[in-house]
Design a binder for these strands. Structure first.
Length: 646
RNA sequence: GCCGACGUAGCUCAGGGGUAGAGCACUUCCUUGGUAAGGAAGAGGCCACGGGUUCAAAUCCCGUCGUUGGCUCCA
């Protein structure tokens, strides 16, 4: 092998020998011209580099295209520079904050200074971006000294960039320049602006410099770009679809829930149909949990302040909670319960426990109240009063793994039944560098963390592990589901807790006749019913699974002459636990069908002269149309098959 | 909590210094109709709330509440 050559190992294991100083682009060219045309950046030994940057040593190289997450984020980060260039051209003298890529697109924080920034004319910026993109300007990387960097931005008068430079080490500062625009940036970037073929500014919002409300508020422009105009169109259609599925909109249209200023914001009111939905979910989970050995308990909505002093929540959250309510004569203070666990600990404590009683799984659909900041409230996903599908498992340390396995099974079953098949599990472990900020013994932590990791492995879960993300009281496992539109939501959670057993002095007598401290596991497959219903609504676009949906059938008499027969059919359906209603309105059948369709009723049973005479129903399925004629029993059979699962 | 936008009939929205409009929903009547909107009439608003400016405020200004896009937060 020649001295001046390097060996490049590709992801498929193949090795290419190339001259020293070859770039990612050269690697691509050595494979195919087509690939080279699509290369956005190169991952060199695990670090994302410009495709043009010279590689001087043997390396593992992965060429990144639009199909790689890192390729996309490089692309979007470069797009942020392009947008900044366009903005600078249109609004001379603006100052720039930061412009990173985000999950979908990118943003740039701008101080428009004296410019009157008008959100009506965003298309002018988009046009300018594409105009500049067409110039195929190369993103040129240059290393600059700290002094030069400071000089450049001092002359430019951009105090935000100076603030950023202030925190950087000399020798570690790079600029990127494309066209007329130079930015402080560590990169990497795509080869040139020509890759950007479609741009859309999605949103304009205020954001404080460095996220600190004491700093000046900048204008944040959220935008997205694509290599093909078609992809932008599809993305915008996805956003449209998301808007249509917004649970706040569907919740109103389908009469699931409402809010009232009089009741108070963040306090959802479940309307009959929404309450039915929520009730079906609860019934479903209660049944599954009973089978899994859970014991339902019921505790009050308030608890004595001392309860939360004991639990430690008063100290930590007291200021940011609904303030205590007091009894009129004694002045005793009670707190709206922000969680169920302290109550459950007291149930545990009410009788002496033996190791033979463990694991003890106490479950409650408890409504809890948390004072969320007013700006945080959002539909049903962030509220001030919500129902947790809560349970606390009290067990011995050596039972943690087994309990995790069981809870994971439960979560998988529940997600499956509701059509969430795409999810990942996040394992949150403690920060190994800083173990003293966590409560509990090293031994127990090690045991629990090992138990979680092994349990997820045994179940074959798709996991990501985050060090330092554990709660101070124990490690946890969170489930993030992807909905039908590809958006991620955090739902279920399983958390180990060493803190509360300590604070409540929970004990059990072991086989050695000694007192021991149990471990507590908090778990909630849905998290909050409110949030879950919101996610489910958006996931299925309001077309809930048949077993869950509030009205499963609508009986539509052709005219009021068949009202009696409609009542007869309804009574029979009720006998078979099929929920629904009869549309007795004085409307034509076309109208009744239309209203049932827009109301997303899964099955419509049309009854008229023919059906009444033959004892049949004419069935119609939502979104599909006429299914034909069935005897009542035939329909019930068809329905029951479709409604299985729950 | 902070910044911006918004708040008009049950819903979706138009209007905009001279005391309110549409469509749908609702009520009544006509119609008894066979697979996505039958017809007519009627009723419905303190234009979020409280101040201010003005001869006159739903409209302009300020404040409050709520909604919303973000920021910060989330046991």
């Amino acid at each position: 092998m020649s001295e001046s050559n390097i060996k490049v190992t590709l992801p498929d294991g193949s090795v290419k020998e190339l001259p020293k100083g070859s770039s990612g682009m050269d690697v691509a060219l050595s494979i195919s011209e087509g690939l080279a045309r699509n290369v956005l950046a190169a991952e060199v030994n695990g670090e994302v580099w410009d495709a043009s940057r010279a590689i001087d040593t043997d390396a593992e190289v992965k060429l990144l295209t639009w199909n790689d997450a890192d390729g996309k984020s490089t692309y979007w980060h470069s797009s942020a520079h392009l947008m900044a260039e366009a903005l600078e051209a249109l609004y001379p003298g603006i100052k720039l904050g930061i412009g990173p890529a985000i999950d979908a697109g990118f943003y740039y924080d701008i101080d428009f200074g004296d410019h009157d920034f008008d959100t009506e004319n965003l298309d002018i910026i988009e046009k300018k971006m594409l105009e500049l993109a067409k110039q195929k300007n190369v993103y040129e990387r240059s290393e600059v000294s700290k002094a030069d960097a400071i000089k450049y931005f001092t002359e430019k008068g951009d105090e935000y960039k100076l603030d950023l430079i202030d925190r950087l080490e000399d020798g570690d500062i790079t600029f990127y320049k494309q066209g007329e625009f130079t930015d402080l940036c560590k990169g990497p970037h795509i080869p040139h602006t020509g890759f950007i073929k479609a741009a859309k500014i999605l949103n304009v919002a205020g954001a404080y410099w460095k996220g600190d409300e004491n700093n000046k508020q900048l204008t944040r422009l959220y935008a997205i770009t694509f290599p093909k105009a078609k992809e932008l169109k599809e993305y915008l259609e996805l956003l449209e679809e998301a808007k249509k599925r917004d649970h706040r909109k569907l919740g109103k249209e389908l009469e699931l829930f409402t809010f009232s200023e009089k009741v108070g914001h963040g306090l959802p009111l479940w309307m009959p149909k929404g309450a039915m939905l929520k009730d079906r979910l609860e019934t479903f989970l209660k049944k599954v949990q009973l089978k899994a050995g859970y014991k339902p308990v019921v505790t009050p909505h308030i608890g004595h302040k001392d309860l939360y002093v004991t639990s430690g929540h008063y100290e930590k959250y007291g200021e940011d909670s609904f303030q205590p309510i007091s009894t009129p004569h004694e002045g005793e203070e009670f707190i709206l319960k922000p969680m169920n666990c302290p109550h459950h600990c007291e149930i545990y404590n009410s009788t002496p426990k033996s190791y033979k009683d463990l694991p003890l799984r106490l479950t409650e659909f408890g409504t809890v109240y948390r004072y969320e900041q007013s700006g945080e409230l959002h539909g049903l996903t962030r509220v001030r009063g919500f129902t947790q599908d809560d349970a606390h498992i009290f067990c011995m340390p050596e039972q943690v793994k087994d309990e995790f396995l069981k809870v994971i099974d439960l979560v998988l079953y529940v997600f499956g039944a509701l059509g969430f098949d795409d999810f990942t599990a996040q394992i949150s472990l403690r920060d190994p560098e800083n173990t003293q900020k966590y409560i509990g013994t090293d031994e127990n932590w090690a045991k629990a963390e090992k138990a979680i990791i092994e349990a997820t492995e045994e179940k074959g879960l798709n996991t990501v592990t985050e060090l330092g993300e554990a709660a101070f009281y124990g490690p946890k496992l969170d489930f993030m589901v992807k909905d039908a539109l590809g958006r991620s939501w955090q739902l279920g959670t399983i958390q180990v807790d060493y803190n509360l057993p300590e604070r409540f002095e929970l004990e059990y007598t072991g086989s050695d006749n000694q007192k021991h401290r149990p471990v507590m596991i908090h778990r909630a497959p849905f998290g909050s019913l409110e949030r879950f219903v919101a996610v489910l609504t958006e996931h299925c676009g309001g077309n809930f699974p048949l077993w869950l949906t509030p009205d499963q059938i609508a009986i539509l008499p052709i005219s009021e002459k068949y009202a009696d027969y409609a009542n007869e059919v309804y009574a029979k359906m009720e006998d078979y636990d099929i929920r629904g209603f009869i549309d007795h309105r004085d409307e034509k059948i076309g109208r009744k069908i239309r209203d049932a369709e827009t109301g997303k009723i899964p099955y419509m049973l049309i009854v008229g002269e023919k059906e009444a005479a033959e004892g049949k129903v004419s069935a119609r399925k939502h979104g599909e149309g006429d299914l034909g004629s069935f005897t009542q029993d035939e329909f019930i059979k068809l329905f029951k098959e479709a409604a299985s699962v729950g």
